[in-house]
Write a protein that binds this DNA or RNA. Structure first.
Length: 898
RNA sequence: GGGUGAUUAGCUCAGUUGGCUAGAGCGCCACGUUGACAUCGUGGAGGUCACUGGUUCGAGUCCAGUAUCGCCCACCA
């Protein structure tokens, strides 16, 4: 091995494999060794290889994140894809990064300051940002180290942070581009305001929750009449900001009031009654109070009808000077006050219980206040259209497909995107206002000395951009854009974006339209969506509930391989899954199984020379035993099917099938059968060694993307070619051997039948018995594998007779049927006639059922006429076999007598 | 109000273009320290694939509807 680092995966834990699998012992050091060997960086394209590189950009975790099980899932899935494509020989890039997480990041540091009794305003912007950076730099390496523990084979040399100079410049360039194009504008709109974060939020950052509340009906007196208009509201305090009452233009009840005025009982203001077709005549009283400054619907009504807006809130959600006697109160206090007055003064008509959908800040859960504010927006319609088109044309595909509908639906109903945030931590809006000529200028430079128009003094916009603005540029800002770097040319667009459904809108859709707008091309062609990992009761894992499973803790106990394997195989694309330690333990046990199978193989190979080709142990050829041919054929099949499953993004099913092959076929049958040929003086040892070396080495390659550590550790111990299983070629499937599969299948069925019969008859498991096998045409085949058969079925060597004759029945014996083969076990003193009779009766019943089913099928004319020939043939075989079995069992029952 | 997912063994879930005598892991029962593995082996029990109808020679798989649970989106005061 030409290792350049001191660590070597082979010598590391001594020469002998330990008796049982200890994940921590083998995972230790392996990752750094891979890294130091340079396996994570994309390889140069091979000459003549026209395939595009495989590129996936990691969704950047927040810098302040501690690795949780959701990260572990995406790391596992992305690493499987990455390792698989790398093994297929494609230049492969998995690019990691971290996100500055504007609001969340700022909040964390503000909380620390609060412990010192300080606010960010005490420090001032500059000092505060220094504190944030210090904090970020301290925490930045943490999650990276944790992802390494999981085996993430990403290229750390390209690690990117959203606030690094490169991506930060990309933000300014993109902003200016959109600003110059008129797609970014500044306007006074109704926005969602978080009074705690003191910033505007986008629609996506507001989470609505139904909460029990009341519906108050208030009476507003009509000016110049005795009439009163009844309006219903869930927020009575907002009447302080009412500037009108709206009714439906066709509503008979209110026709005569349109254009007249009502007097707001609380502030004695006169406000007009307007008509707007948006009003639902059937809801409440059919008349709505209009508060344009604090309700998005009312804002729209006001826009259409020309009503003014009256802001009654301070930015901390207390009432302002327009609230009169309620000034300075919180919303709850003001509400209570307004209701009390209404009741006292007789204009409260009714109070009913009502479920009300209330918006909360996604970050801090504070109740959101809609209010009118001057903010920056991205005009979405022109950007959404090509993003929709990309999904329609198939240039952008979703796995599972149904998420395309989710994506479409959002883009089709999209509102403009509020991108300014009244925070300090983030990308500062690259806009400067001239203090002298009132000019507004965007720039891609970090600073602007003076007004480009008049040379006057300029001041930069104090706000920062929504974190997702920089995220939306991620697929190219990480590759050096806006510079024309070699990486950008080679790795854009990417291949797959693997992420969770919760950020399809936040991130995926925005990357798509920004990619199309800035690069002229979608940033990736496939979006793979994974589900959420929940606890075993189906609840979301959360810190506050304390039901979280810490991936690092689990890895240190069961191994990163076991955790990864569990996460991937328990889930199917797009669906949530439930994780428990019990499942991880089962995966660890699989590791132990593999470990011991390899230990057995290494011991069996011993000093035997193994034929090698340029990939590894050569495929065994020549005069092979039936079991050899069978396992090679099964390996072909699992290679074929797991490759097909990976191509279809069915990672879990692929992983399960590889496990099933290794455990239930290689270990349970091949290795057990091979033992007989490894005995002293046996002549099959060399062939077994070759088959084991070949099969196991291939199996390790198949499993490697799923369980990278253990497969590397074991692969290094087996005969192999190359430095690491990471770069060994992904296996291609051979043709398979149907004849061997069928013949060995019969042997397996016979062995199972004999074991079953022995158990029924109460034969001690270790006891060797005699048997005569009537194998008919298969006699030669069974004869060829007699030693293996004898071992598997525990039939004593000298007492196994294999014949092509018709079955003969002994009085005190047990009869076992498998396909066309009958085994007779003279168990003499152990036989309880009653038990044996019952067993045979049961088998007869089963055979009868088989016969009936087959007869029914074959008796159906249209089945025979329309079903494919192969399906019909199966039924014919089934009928023939069941008839044969019925005859044999009957005969045997007769022979048994009473 | 619109989407959308789930409903398969005691539990958690697979089941990819319809051919299934419906599988796995865990749990359960019986037996077992045979030199790879007790982080194991052998055998076993356990399911009318939510319900109703339809398409088909054939449906867990396709279609329509119903029920329950869940998620997403939506400006009903």
């Amino acid at each position: 091995m030409a290792s350049t680092s001191a660590f070597s995966p082979v010598t590391h834990s001594g020469d002998e494999l330990a008796k049982s699998y200890d994940p921590t012992a083998i995972e230790q050091g392996l990752y750094d060794w891979w890294d130091s060997e340079g396996y994570f960086a994309p390889a140069a394209s091979k000459e003549g290889d026209q395939r595009p590189p495989f590129v996936t950009i990691m969704p950047p975790p927040n810098v302040t994140d501690v690795l949780h099980v959701g990260h572990a899932l995406f790391v596992a899935l992305q690493d499987i894809m990455t390792r698989w494509h790398r093994m297929k020989g494609e230049p492969t890039l998995w690019l990691p990064g971290a996100d500055h997480a504007g609001i969340a990041g700022q909040w964390v540091v503000e909380k620390l300051l609060a412990e010192e009794g300080l606010t960010r305003h005490d420090l001032g912007r500059e000092q505060f940002l220094e504190r944030v950076w210090a904090f970020m730099n301290e925490y930045r390496p943490r999650i990276r180290e944790q992802m390494k523990l999981l085996g993430a084979s990403c290229d750390w040399s390209r690690f990117a942070f959203t606030m690094d100079p490169g991506p930060a410049r990309a933000v300014r360039v993109a902003f200016k581009h959109l600003y110059d194009k008129g797609l970014i504008y500044r306007g006074e709109r109704i926005i969602s305001w978080c009074p705690r974060c003191r910033t505007a939020l986008s629609d996506l950052e507001v989470k609505h929750r139904e909460e029990p509340s009341s519906l108050w009906t208030l009476a507003y007196p009509v000016e110049g009449s005795d009439e009163r208009v009844l309006v219903a509201t869930t927020r009575p305090e907002t009447m302080l900001g009412d500037t009108g009452v709206a009714v439906h233009p066709d509503d008979e009840r209110y026709q005569r009031l349109i254009g007249r005025h009502v007097r707001l009982p609380i502030s004695n203001r006169l406000i007009p009654v307007v008509a707007d077709s948006h009003v639902d005549r059937a809801f409440g009283t059919g008349a709505v109070k209009v508060t344009p400054a604090h309700d998005p619907n009312d804002f729209d009504i006001a826009q259409r009808t020309g009503l003014p807006a009256l802001n009654i809130l301070n930015l901390d959600a207390t009432l302002n000077e327009h609230a009169g006697e309620f000034e300075g109160m919180t919303i709850d206090e003001a509400r209570a006050g307004v209701v009390a007055r209404a009741e006292a003064e007789g204009w409260l008509v009714s109070v009913e219980a009502h479920l009300h959908s209330v918006g909360h800040c996604d970050r801090c859960d504070t109740v959101i206040q809609p209010l009118i504010s001057k903010q920056w927006f991205v005009q979405m319609a022109p950007l959404a259209e090509p993003a929709l088109e990309a999904a329609h044309s198939g240039e952008l595909a979703f796995v599972p497909e149904r998420f395309k509908g989710v994506y479409d639906n959002w883009l089709e109903n999209i509102h403009d995107w509020t991108i300014s945030r009244q925070l300090w931590w983030g990308h500062r809006i690259p806009i400067w206002y001239c203090q002298e000529c009132d000019g507004v200028h965007a720039s891609i430079d970090e600073t602007m000395e003076s007004c480009p128009a008049c040379g006057g003094r300029v001041e930069q916009d104090p706000d920062v951009l929504d974190t997702w603005f920089s995220s939306s540029l991620w697929p190219f800002s990480t590759l050096g854009w806006p510079d024309k770097t070699p990486d950008l040319a080679r790795f854009y667009p990417g291949t797959v974006m693997e992420t969770g459904y919760e950020i399809i809108f936040h991130w995926v859709a925005r990357m798509v339209f920004m990619g199309i707008e800035m690069m002229g091309e979608v940033p990736f062609h496939t979006v793979y969506i994974h589900g959420m990992v929940r606890d075993i009761d189906g609840a979301k894992m959360s810190k506050t509930k304390g039901n979280g499973i810490d991936p690092i803790e689990v890895s240190s106990q069961y191994g990163a391989d076991a955790l990864r394997y569990t996460l991937v195989t328990q889930a199917s694309p797009g669906n949530d899954s439930r994780l428990s330690l019990q499942k991880v333990e089962a995966s660890r046990n699989f590791g132990n199984k593999l470990w011991n199978a390899t230990r057995f193989a290494i011991r069996s190979i011993g000093e035997t020379p193994i034929d090698m080709d340029d990939q590894g142990p050569a495929r065994p050829a020549g005069d092979l035993a039936l079991a050899d041919r069978w396992i090679l054929s099964r390996l072909d099949e699992v290679t074929r099917s797991s490759t097909r499953l990976l191509e279809g993004y069915l990672f879990g099913e692929a992983g399960r099938q590889i496990n099933d092959f290794i455990w239930s076929e290689l270990c349970d049958w091949y290795i057990e059968a091979a033992k007989v040929r490894l005995r002293e003086g046996s002549d099959g040892q060399a062939a077994v060694a070759q088959v084991l070396a070949y099969t196991l080495e291939r199996s390790l390659r198949l499993l490697h993307p799923f369980m990278p550590f253990i497969t590397e550790a074991l692969w290094q111990r087996l005969p192999h070619v190359g430095g690491s299983v990471m770069t060994a070629p992904w296996p291609s499937a051979g043709e398979g051997d149907a004849e061997a599969e069928q013949a060995f299948g019969t042997v397996m069925t016979l062995v199972r039948g004999i074991r079953n019969a022995r158990a029924d008859a109460g034969v001690e498991p270790g006891r060797w018995v005699a048997a005569r096998v009537h194998a008919g045409a298969l006699a030669a085949v069974i004869e060829s594998t007699r030693a293996e058969f004898g071992l598997l079925a525990r039939i004593a060597d000298g007492q196994l007779e294999i014949t092509s004759e018709e079955p003969r029945h002994e009085p005190s014996s047990v009869t076992v049927l498998a396909d066309g083969v009958v085994a007779v076990l003279p168990l003499a003193e152990m036989i309880d006639i009653g038990v044996e009779r019952a067993r045979l009766e049961r088998e007869l019943g089963e055979a009868e059922q088989e016969r009936q089913r087959a007869e029914k099928q074959l008796g159906n004319g249209s089945f025979v006429a329309r079903a494919p020939e192969s399906v019909v043939a199966v039924q014919r075989d089934r009928l023939a076999r069941s008839l044969e079995q019925i005859a044999i069992i009957r005969e045997r029952l007769d022979a048994l007598g009473e």
